[in-house]
Write a protein that binds this DNA or RNA. Structure first.
Lengths: 149, 149
DNA sequence: GTAAGACGTAACTATAATAGTTACAACGAA
DNA sequence: TTCGTTGTAACTATTATAGTTACGTCTTAC
């Protein structure tokens, strides 16, 4: 199983808001770059708004960043779009037999490892800010424009 | 989304094989401890067998460890049961617009981070052997038997 | 040899999440 | 007051999980 693309869509949206601050970012416009339906964008944007990462103007429309890029980590986005429940990246089978010594104790032992593994993954996301990502992205774009891509 | 319980079931099965080496481990017996259907056990056991972690006797039945506990890491089990495709823990949206600078470059930039995050998670699993897990488990069981649980 | 028990696998089901789509009320700005 | 947009409900198709029944095949023991 995979972590929902809501995460990558969220990062894509924030990157667009950062790189093209002058444009009018309607859900239709954003959907054009992401390659999906405007409603999918509105749903992700709703998550970003709720998490305080983006502002969305009702009526006239258009989204903007609600925070500096330095103050948004990939973990913030990941948590905002609600792709993995806290400490529950791994699904543990639910009815181990309490009458069996192994069944009665496997969960708490294995859970330790699972939480640690998940934390390591999320630690990597926490260490990358949208500023860094957008900088790499901008360099990538510039590189291709110069004919090196 | 969550990583399939095939992983936790696989660990549970191997723990049983290790802790009770004398028993006749049929899928029915294992299913009793895991709390599921024998067919589910056979399917997971099939993965473990294919990966060289367990032996399963046809006809008379019964599973045994195919390797020393020290030589089985949690990552081996995780890979054996095929819960996450290599480098694809995260699902990236699939049609970013190549005509948009961001759409054309977001994937390769974001993919870097995703792979790194996944690797960190798997690194934790790689660092834990079934020997270590079974030792902790055995201590846990012994502790409860002594009335401290 | 043959009967009993167990594995391997196919086939079907229910459940849940994802992601796309249409539709529409509410809102804001020109 | 009209136009474009947001927020959200409702529906769909697709996919994965996990449980279940069923059955052919195999091993062992009698």
């Amino acid at each position: 199983m995979q972590i929902s693309s809501r995460f990558s869509i969220g990062v894509h949206i924030l990157s667009l808001l950062a790189i093209r601050p002058q444009d009018h970012h309607t859900s239709e416009w954003l959907a054009g770059s992401v390659g999906t339906n405007p409603v999918v964008i509105r749903r992700v944007l709703g998550h970003l708004k709720k998490a305080g990462l983006a502002n969305v103007k009702a009526g006239s429309g258009g989204a903007t960043l609600a925070r500096e890029l330095d103050e948004i980590t990939l973990l913030d986005v990941y948590r905002a779009v609600d792709v993995v429940e806290e400490g529950r990246l791994f699904h543990m089978h639910e009815q181990p037999n309490p009458a069996c010594p192994v069944g009665a104790n496997i969960e708490q032992v294995l859970r330790l490892m699972m939480v640690k593994a998940q934390a390591a993954m999320e630690g990597v996301l926490a260490a990358v800010t949208m500023r860094e990502l957008v900088d790499v992205l901008a360099r990538e774009i510039e590189g291709k424009r110069a004919g090196n891509g």
